[in-house]
Design a protein around this nucleic acid. Structure first.
Length: 150
DNA sequence: GCCAACGTTGGC
DNA sequence: GCCAACGTTGGC
């Protein structure tokens, strides 16, 4: 069992959208490192903070659970999608996604609040220049954030 | 809108 | 395989 933090732009998929839809494929990842986390490291039952990025109030907005192993991301085959990849074919998909299911909506925990916690100083998302949309979270970091959310 | 940081591309 | 140019990310 591992912990993760997964960024989503709420204008595309917000925690409220996930709550309404129960399960969503984590489509749109176009970064090899993030893809490899989904393909090689994520396990069914892993928990992730659902993080709202590129929005008015960036921060942790909820919790979700990995509920399907990595499979082809359909958006890579759709010419109408911004995530279309002409070099990908159903035979040889380049991009994968796991499915996640809604666990809970939390109060919004802004990134500024995360930065104020010494226990979280090592979090990958808080490091300078971090851009990765999926990052591992240590058990200690997970616990510290859960405490903040109480 | 700014801009630092990073990943990708492609010529050589 | 190098590396400059370019595009993207994402907080501020």
């Amino acid at each position: 069992m591992a912990y993760w933090l997964m960024k989503s732009e709420p204008s595309e998929v917000s925690i409220d959208d996930l709550q309404a839809r129960k399960v969503v494929p984590w489509f749109g990842v176009r970064n090899y490192q993030a893809r490899n986390f989904m393909r090689d490291a994520m396990q069914l039952g892993d928990l992730a903070f659902f993080y709202h990025s590129s929005c008015a109030e960036p921060g942790i907005a909820g919790i979700c659970e990995v509920c399907a192993a990595a499979h082809a991301d359909d958006t890579q085959f759709d010419p109408a999608s911004p995530y279309f990849d002409a070099k990908a074919t159903p035979d040889r998909p380049r991009w994968l996604c796991v499915d996640v299911k809604f666990v809970e909506k939390t109060r919004l925990l802004p990134i500024a609040a995360l930065r104020q916690q010494p226990a979280l100083a090592g979090m990958q998302i808080l490091q300078r220049g971090n851009r990765l949309s999926i990052t591992p979270v240590s058990a200690d970091e997970w616990q510290a954030i859960m405490e903040l959310l109480k």
